[in-house]
Design a protein around this nucleic acid. Sequence first.
DNA 1: TATTGTTATACTCTATAACTATA
DNA 2: TATAGTTATAGAGTATAACAATA
Lengths: 152, 152
Amino acid sequence: MVIDGHPLPLEPRLGHLLKQAQAKLARASAEALAAHGVDGHDLAVLGVLCAGSGEELSQVEVAGRLGIDRTTMVALIDGLEDQGLVRRRRSPRDRRKNIVEPTPEGRDCLHRAERARRAAEHRFLAPLDTETASALVRALTLLAGETPATAE
Amino acid sequence: MVIDGHPLPLEPRLGHLLKQAQAKLARASAEALAAHGVDGHDLAVLGVLCAGSGEELSQVEVAGRLGIDRTTMVALIDGLEDQGLVRRRRSPRDRRKNIVEPTPEGRDCLHRAERARRAAEHRFLAPLDTETASALVRALTLLAGETPATAE
DNA sequence: TATTGTTATACTCTATAACTATA
DNA sequence: TATAGTTATAGAGTATAACAATA
């Protein structure tokens, strides 16, 4: 990183670049989402709840789809429920499960906040031309994926 | 993220991709560096100390070049000094400053660990062809940079 | 016995405040 | 008064352990 005019101390490190780029986008997204009263995790949960084919999702199922822990999900749903964006109800078929459903307000919030997030992402990508931006997404998708287990 | 066969819940989010890619590379680098008894921060400090034109660097100067806090630097240097990889000595010209110098062991460690880190980075980039990989680095460099202040 | 929701706990990482010695 | 090094503290974020209810 260049600090007050010092030259780059090392050849650019991919790890640093990824970290800085991620942090910068995260800041921009957080700023864009703040106006809608949600953060990235909230938005992801709402997205999962509203994306599906109307199937009922429990807390662990939402957590599983987002790759976060079920213990983390509790506070997340608490916050969304306090804001009236989702509702919990016991599943009649398996009384251990909390079915989590978006409210109309939740669906509305999702649409507005998701638009804001996309706009922030678009602004973030503005330094790149369209082809470079999609090449970036393609490359990151390849790199972020699970490494296939090698036969050893 | 795809969890046990579920389809992608949302269109791929750039933020998630960046985070996952960064985390995956960080894990691979940490694993590669562990054999040399250092982590990424240690390596970065050694790199700054050994990169220069022989100029003496104090703790704050190293911290400034790496964009980390001077309070974080203390424990970092402590660890490196305990391992015999760097030495502290008071600057005779400004007795507030600790000049931090790499030992021969530190230089040796840097070279070996840096080679291991580069190899891990290379393996991480293996899913991409050479042109795509350099395009990725170029794109990330553009994106990670300071956003020029807009005239508003 | 295993799973779901929940709470409490611990642990990492980093940011802030404050102290000392020097300038 | 400002800076360098240091320590202690606090906060966010996340992982682990344990418990009650239910399967």
